[in-house]
Amino acid sequence: MAVWCVLLLLAVVNGAAREAWLVRHFDAETAHVLSTLMLCLWIVAAVWWLAPWLCLRSERQALRTGLAWVALTMAFESLVGHYLLGRPWSAVWEDYDLKDGHIWPLVLIVTAASPWLAWRARRRSS
């Protein structure tokens, strides 16, 4: 849970950086794509760095951890987006629509896979 909170903090900082810098230099769609890709890199780096702290003992545990983080992320996005920010449910789920060029699901895939990738890589190096 603590590592997921670090990932959440990275996402918030990444979003603030997008709004403060990227949207000044790129159109909104490009800024969103760049921000999403940057967040994916931050997630992989953070999970790699924090992997020893996770104490993952098996491939199954690594996969479960990633899926739990995805569930937490989707719950957070949905609840904050709808109840705190007052966005309608259709707008909350808009970022998940690949047909419209939204690549947010890539963040979920990276979040789900990162513990497993870190576990595999660290297991090979030991």
Results as ranks from 00 to 15, higher is better:
Ala45Cys: 12
Lys99Ala: 06
Leu84Lys: 06
Leu10Arg: 04
Trp49Met: 14
Met74Asp: 06
Ala51Phe: 03
Ala91Lys: 05
Leu79Ile: 08
Ser35Asn: 15
Trp93Asn: 03
Ala17Asn: 13
Leu56Met: 00
Arg60Tyr: 07
Trp116Asp: 03
Val80Ala: 06
Ser90Glu: 13
Leu67Met: 02
Ile103Tyr: 01
Val70Tyr: 01
Val6Ile: 15
Leu72Gly: 06
Arg120Trp: 09
Leu34Glu: 11
Glu19Gly: 13
Arg24Gln: 15
Thr30Pro: 11
Ser58His: 04
Leu117Gln: 05
Leu37Gln: 14
Leu108Phe: 06
Tyr96His: 09
Leu72Thr: 00
Ser114Lys: 08
Ile103Gly: 06
Ala62Glu: 03
Ser78Phe: 12
Trp89Val: 11
Cys5Phe: 15
Glu19Cys: 12
Trp42Lys: 05
Leu108Asp: 09
Leu50Thr: 09
Trp48His: 14
Trp21Val: 15
Pro115Tyr: 04
Leu108Val: 03
Phe26Ala: 14
Phe26Cys: 11
Val23Phe: 10
Pro105Gly: 07
Leu108Asn: 10
Met74Gly: 05
Tyr83Pro: 01
Ala17Tyr: 15
Asp27Cys: 05
Leu10Met: 11
Pro105Lys: 03
Trp116Pro: 06
Thr30Ala: 13
Val47Asp: 02
Arg64Trp: 10
Glu94Met: 09
Ala46Gly: 10
Gly81His: 00
Pro52Thr: 04
Leu84Asn: 05
Thr111Val: 07
Pro115Trp: 01
Ser126Phe: 08
Leu10Pro: 00
Ala121Glu: 12
Val70Glu: 03
Val110Asp: 02
Trp89Phe: 08
Leu50Gln: 10
Ser35Gln: 06
Cys55Gln: 13
Ser78Val: 06
Arg24Trp: 14
Tyr83Asp: 05
Val44Gln: 11
Pro88Val: 01
Ala16Asp: 14
Ile43Gly: 10
Val80Ser: 08
His102Met: 07
Trp93Asp: 00
Gly86Lys: 00
Leu106Ile: 08
Thr65Met: 11
Ala17Met: 15
Ala68Leu: 09
Trp104Gly: 01
Gly101Lys: 02
Lys99Tyr: 04
Leu117Asp: 04
Leu7Tyr: 03
Arg123Glu: 09
Trp104Lys: 04
His102Asp: 03
Arg60Asp: 09
Glu94Pro: 00
Ser90Asp: 11
Arg123Ser: 11
Leu34Thr: 04
Ala113Leu: 12
Leu63Val: 12
Gly101Glu: 00
Tyr96Lys: 07
Leu50Lys: 14
Ala31Asp: 12
Arg87Pro: 00
Ala62Tyr: 02
Glu29His: 15
Asp97Ile: 05
Leu41Trp: 12
Ala62Asn: 02
Val3Pro: 12
Val44Ala: 12
Trp53Lys: 09
Trp89Gly: 01
Ala68Glu: 08
Cys55Thr: 10
Trp93Gln: 05
Ala20Ser: 10
Trp48Glu: 13
Glu77Arg: 01
Ser35Cys: 14
Ser90Thr: 09
Leu34Arg: 10
His25Ala: 14
Trp49Phe: 13
Trp116Val: 07
Lys99Ser: 06
Val23Trp: 13
Arg87Val: 02
Val107Trp: 03
Val23Cys: 09
Cys40Arg: 04
Arg64Ala: 11
Thr65Val: 06
Arg57Asn: 11
Ile109Glu: 04
Ala118His: 01
Ser126Asn: 10
Met74Lys: 05
Glu29Val: 15
Trp104Phe: 13
Ile109Ala: 13
Trp93Glu: 01
Phe76Val: 09
Gly81Glu: 02
Pro115Gly: 02
Leu72His: 01
Leu67Ala: 02
Arg57Val: 08
Arg57Gly: 14
Ser90Gly: 00
